[in-house]
Each structure stands twice: as C-alpha cells, then as structure tokens.
Nucleic acid binder design. Structure first.
Lengths: 220, 220
DNA sequence: CCGCCGTCGAATGTATGAAAGTTTCTATGC
DNA sequence: GCATAGAAACTTTCATACATTCGACGGCGG
C-alpha cells in the first residue's frame, strides 16, 4: 500500500506529458514536423498512443494536425502572445483582488520561497516558477477553472519567450515587482497590489515586437 | 467541382463533432458513461477514431477519462459556471470596447439578423445563436485567440443551462438588452455599451443557484 | 526545353487482434 | 444469512495489420 509515486496511468498520458514538456521547453521548435512512427520508435511504443497524445496536444493548442499530412508543433505569433497578455491583464488583477482577503501566512511564505527560488534557479525553469508564484497568489481566490485557463496562457507565453531571440531578461525588474507585490498582499493593500500587478503584466509586454499592445479596457 | 458537402476529412474529427454536439445539446447527460465499443458500433466505425475523439473532448473539458475505467461526460458544477461568467465579465466588455470603433455596417446588420433569428428559432439553438451574436459584436476587435477561448466558455455555459431544471427563460430580457446593445454600438457609444454589456452578463447569472456570484473586480 | 501524367514510396488513417485490468456474479466457508 | 474469494465476462489499452492518401520522381508528349 505504499503507492508513493502516483501510478503513471496510461502510456498515452505519459506521451502527452513528455511531448508537452519538449514543446514548452523549446526542444521541439515551432513548425517542426512530428512523425508518429519516429516518436513511437524513440519512446519504444506503438503509434496508437502517440496518435492519441497528438490529438490531445492539438486541443491544447500546442500542436496542429492537418488531415492526411500529419502533425507539427504549433507556431505562436507575437499577436497571439499579445492577446494572451491581454487575457492576463483582465483576469489576474481580478483574481488577486479576490485572493488577498483570503490569504494565509502559509500562502505568503510560499510566495516568498518561490521568489527566492527563482533567483537561484536556471533560466530554463524561470517561466514555470513564475507561474507557480502567480498561482500561489491567486489560489486563495478559489477559482480553479480560471486558474486552469491561465495556466495554459502562461504556458504558451513561456514557450513564446523561449522561442524568441529577443530574450530580454526582465528577471531583475520582475523580482523587485514580485517582492513589492507580496508585501502589498501581506499588508492587505488590495488597490495598490492590483495596480502594481497591472503594471507588472504590462511591463512584461514592453519588449514584445511592436504590435497591438493591450490597453486597460477603458476601466479607468 | 460541386463538392457541396465537404467531406470533413477524417473520421475521428467527425466523431469529435458529433459527440460534442450530443454533449452540448444534452443528449448525453453529465456523468453518463461513454463506451468505446458501443459508440463505434453505433457510428459504424472502429474503436481507434473513437478513442482519439474522446481524448480530444477530454482536453476540451467535455469528457473525463479515467485510466482503465473509461470515459464519461464531464459534470459541470454551478461554481464552474459562475467562474465562466466571471471570465465573460472580465473579457467581453474589453473586447466590445475595442470592437465598436472598428464595426462596419455589415457587422451591425449581421447582429440585427441574428437577434431576429433568435426570436423565431427554437430554444435548442438559442445558446448557439446567442454566442454567434456576441461573437459578431466582438469580432471587429481582431482578437481571435480570446474569441476561441470565449467560445469554449459559452459552450460550457450553454450546456449547463440546458442541464439545469431551473431553465429560467431570460430570452425576453436578453432580447431587449441585445437590441439596445446593438443600437449603442451603432451610435458608437462605447462607455454606455460596455456598461450595458456588463449588466447583461450579470443578469444572466442572476438565476444561477445561489453561489459565489462574480463581482466587478473592484475596477469601479 | 517545358509541362503533364502515371507510377511508386512513405506516412497517415482505420480496423482488428491480443493483453491487462475492472466489474460482476456466483459459490463457498463461516 | 452474510461476507468473501474466485472466476467469468466485459472494457479498456496497446500493438499490429490493412487501406488510403499525398507527394515525389521520372517518363512521355508537345
């Protein structure tokens, strides 16, 4: 009855996780063709679970399936990423405002821990840790569905940033903003925390290729 | 060169569309078990494309797959629906504000056409037409990614409403609001249209079971 | 020399078969 | 009579075999 590591469930699921990791980490570049037979051989399985995995990844937006032609890693355009930042800008401040009154000491120390971790961790994990931090801050709002949606958004943004040559390193700025943000949360300063979060998200868009930048939606 | 009804390419894709339709229309009730063999026989195909379809529907949130146990139609809780209304409330007014300056006469007449259509159409199609209308209004904003996300949200809300006994019929109210909304868009009254849209979305939540109702996120 | 067409090859899509796990029903022991 | 162990039937899961489609290559004709 140990059951320490959760049973890996099905092969198809494992393939999904492995391929998703490779795509997000940039090991599979956007536009790269994904051949079922080759993937199957490399992983030592048959094509059936590979096909199922590709279907699932398509629904997640990481892969494009063209009938009778095969699968390729979905490209992300700068404009898509700009839209994803818009989504963040509309949803995350809302969640933070709901979360702050519900935050516990444990939430705040977990946030602090993640901020510290982000400094020492290598750049390859920064995006994931960044989402871990944001999720920690929004989690007390008790909005699991919205969080799942945002997780996918962050995933795609992370992938795009990894892809881009720009690789402007905003980590120093981000760290300062994160620290201030957590302080404001600890102090229960909802308004100021929300404002800072808006600026924090906008700052992250500042170095995207010049495209439609999100505006504040007229909510003054 | 007739090619009237395009063969939708692959069988798996057709199965996805058929099963999605059945789930959204409520023909398959939440929690219902979906057996591969039975579905395959009924549709006259083999299990392979059925399995792929179920995988995709799982990623869309309409189906739950439990390893070694099978698939069932995903339940929707009232709180999930409440979250989806929150998402609408945060994103749709933003899109509308962006869209209004870009609207053409064609957009507005299409909206009017859909409003008329909603009156005569039977209740089974109301939800889909409602989304068609809203999408028409947001489409000039040129935010395809956000629209895709909202489409899924509307899909799930529609499914929930169909499921519920409550079936409060807000269509009359909705129609009046829709008409006023289009008028404000035509007049270029961004602020007032956005306000009305917020109220319109909130009104739709008014008859959900008493749960955490969305608030305005503190953006006064 | 250019362009069209038919054949061949490779990868995808679908069906079927075999193995593993789950559920159910029965029969047995207490 | 009830609980439980065990076997049978069923379902899922993965692998393999078959069918189909797309693209490339080369020959043939203009």
């Amino acid at each position: 009855m140990s059951m320490l590591a959760i049973s890996k469930s099905t092969i198809a699921t494992q393939i999904v996780e492995e391929l998703r990791r490779r795509i997000i980490k940039g090991e599979y570049r956007a536009g790269m063709k994904l051949q079922q037979e080759q993937i199957a051989q490399e992983l030592g399985v048959s094509r059936s679970p590979v096909r199922e995995a590709l279907r699932q990844l398509e629904a997640e937006g990481l892969v494009i399936l063209i009938s009778q032609k095969g699968a390729e890693v979905a490209p992300i355009s700068a404009s898509e990423v700009a839209e994803m930042f818009e989504i963040r800008l509309q949803l995350e401040p809302h969640l933070l405002a709901l979360a702050i009154p519900q935050m516990t000491a444990a939430d705040l120390s977990e946030a602090a821990r993640l901020i510290a971790l982000m400094e020492t961790s290598d750049v390859g994990n920064w995006g994931m840790l960044n989402w871990d931090l944001h999720r920690t801050l929004y989690s007390p709002a008790e909005r699991p569905t919205i969080l799942r949606m945002l997780e996918r958004v962050h995933q795609n943004i992370d992938r795009y940033l990894r892809m881009e040559i720009t690789r402007y390193d905003g980590r120093a700025t981000a760290k300062a903003e994160h620290q201030t943000l957590v302080s404001l949360c600890r102090a229960g300063q909802v308004e100021r925390a929300v404002s800072l979060l808006r600026m924090h998200i906008l700052n992250a868009t500042a170095h995207l290729p010049e495209m439609a930048k999100p505006d504040n939606g007229g909510t003054s």
